[in-house]
Amino acid sequence: MQPDLGAVRLTLELATVVTVLLLFIGTPIAWWLARTRSRLKSFIGAMVALPLVLPPTVLGFYLLLLMGPNGPIGNITQSLGLGILPFTFSGLVVASTLYSMPFVVQPLQNAFEAIGERPLEVAATLRAPPLDTFFSVALPLAKPGFITAAILGFAHTVGEFGVVLMIGGNIPDRTRVVSVEIYNHVEALEYAQAHWLAGGMLAFSFLVLFALYSFNPNRK
């Protein structure tokens, strides 16, 4: 059971770091997507949404190539003296951030779009410069979107499997997260242990979604 607890702790750690990171990265992206009229909008929007449709193994495979010693990202991390990212916690963070991106960006984008132009125009007529408007009007009005985004980003990172499997290397306490551990148990025919973790995951996911829907019962 000990290794399983390590996997649970690692998973929660990973999901927390990724969620915080995604809120910081996702907010400007979502804001831009919600407000721009640029032709790049469809392009960036499609890029962000890619993980929704890609098998995680595809993303994992390309990340393995890109972050490897011969890949462009690997070259950068190596020249910075960081080594390569696969098989490290940081590597998982990078991969999960990319993979969970749409689950954070899309609710934020919807929330920002739902605000509409009017409150922002009102703020401008009340002497608020754009950045001020963003913090004093857009952010508070988009609060439900932030809560949704954080919950979805966290839950999705917890549930993520394929990408971690592809670049993690199954190292205890570093990259062996719950979903991988479940897979290991199933493969090793350790069904009892698999049930504990898988059942826990099921309960967790349900509770998260239940909380989400109770928090915001009018979600369309």
Binding site: G68, P69, M166, N170, I171
Partner: peptide, 20 residues
């Protein structure tokens, strides 16, 4: 220094891409 692939196909991938 050990990293584990879920199966030998994935292990091969780790090595082929130079990550291991």
């Amino acid at each position: 220094k050990v990293v584990q692939g879920e199966n030998i196909a994935q292990t091969y991938q780790f090595i082929a891409t130079g990550n291991a």
